[in-house]
């Protein structure tokens, strides 16, 4: 064996060993990768593909139709209604839920006699399955003898059919969603507050800062990473809401509460229009990806305080 070939062999061995070394992390990732591929990547790619086809139900044959499923969405008046509803739902739930969660967390951050009881009480809606909570609220909103109508009757003469009236149906669903989620996000804020150094407040008090000033100058900025995280989760949740719509309104009346994911369900499993359902799914995925991308950019960049 020549010197040159021996050198070449040695190099190959080193390279192979290096390659082998590199394979290990991938091997460790395989189990989760398999599941991600099966339940996430494959369905996503398959939706992308299906959105370009129209399924003929009788023969189970797919016809390639290009982007015509997307074009049909653009011309679909129900779809534009659904988009407006989803935007209203996002703006109606996310800021209020986050503000409420922060408020509750700040109130309950300090330990006193009843704080555990209150924390439990506010966290309790999170423990209920959403379907169950929606069924309870369906009764709460019943005109005539439901809790809400009984107590608010004096304000609105004649009472209100909350879920039956297109003007109030979406706000009624929004109210339930806020009640359901605020306690959950409160938990994140309570955890975030543990990381805020108490000396900061001591110093602020020595300087004569009011409670509101302390909140504005210390608590809120230092909780910014938590806020951003909760914002991300809450926005994604808003687009994934479907249980309460299914139980309380079925998307009605007159499509007043039809949200994006429910519309996907309708198209896929009530009307079996799989091409349309796939196009809607791709649209929904795009929205979620934009939200995720923007949030992670922000998380990486700006908000990182060291104390």
């Amino acid at each position: 064996m020549s010197v040159a070939s021996r050198a070449a062999l040695g190099e190959r061995v080193v390279r192979a060993r290096r390659r082998g070394w590199r394979a290990q992390p991938y091997l460790l990732l395989v189990p989760s990768l398999v599941f991600l591929a099966m339940f996430t990547y494959y369905p996503v790619l398959s939706s992308l593909e299906m959105s370009l086809y129209q399924l003929s139900p009788a023969t189970h044959q797919q016809h390639f139709v290009g982007f015509s499923n997307y074009a049909a969405l653009a011309a679909d008046p129900v779809f534009s209604r659904v988009l407006v509803n989803s935007a209203a739902f996002l703006l109606g739930t996310v800021p209020v839920t986050i503000a409420l969660a922060l408020f509750l967390a700040v109130l309950l951050a300090r330990t006193h006699a009843l704080s555990t009881a209150f924390r439990t009480a506010f966290f309790y809606p999170t423990l209920l399955p959403l379907v169950g909570a929606a069924a309870i609220w369906l009764f709460v909103y019943t005109p005539g003898y439901g809790l809400v109508d009984v107590y608010l009757r004096g304000l609105v003469p004649g009472g209100v059919n909350y879920l039956g009236d297109p003007r109030y149906a979406l706000p009624a669903v929004i109210a339930l969603t806020i009640w359901k989620n605020a306690g959950y996000y409160m938990l994140f804020y309570l955890a975030g507050l543990q990381g805020v150094a108490l000396e900061l407040y001591e110093t602020a008090r020595l300087e004569g800062a009011s409670a509101w000033q302390q909140f504005r100058a210390i608590t809120f900025p230092l909780l910014a990473p938590t806020t951003l995280f909760v914002l991300l989760i809450a926005s994604i949740n808003a687009f994934q809401s479907v249980d309460q719509i299914w139980v309380m309104t079925g998307g009605g009346p007159d499509n007043a509460t039809n949200l994006l994911l429910f519309y996907v369900y309708q198209a896929a499993f009530m009307f079996f229009d799989l091409g349309k359902a796939a196009a809607l799914t791709v649209f929904l995925l795009a929205i979620l990806m934009v939200i995720a991308a923007v949030s992670f950019r922000l998380l990486e960049r700006r908000i990182h305080y060291e104390v």
């Binding site: 019943t142 879920l163 039956g164 009605g252 009346p253």
Partner: peptide
């Protein structure tokens, strides 16, 4: 008759 649209909730009610 109560005003407003009929719905699945009204059906149950």
């Amino acid at each position: 008759h109560p005003p407003g649209p009929s719905s699945p909730a009204f059906w149950g009610q």
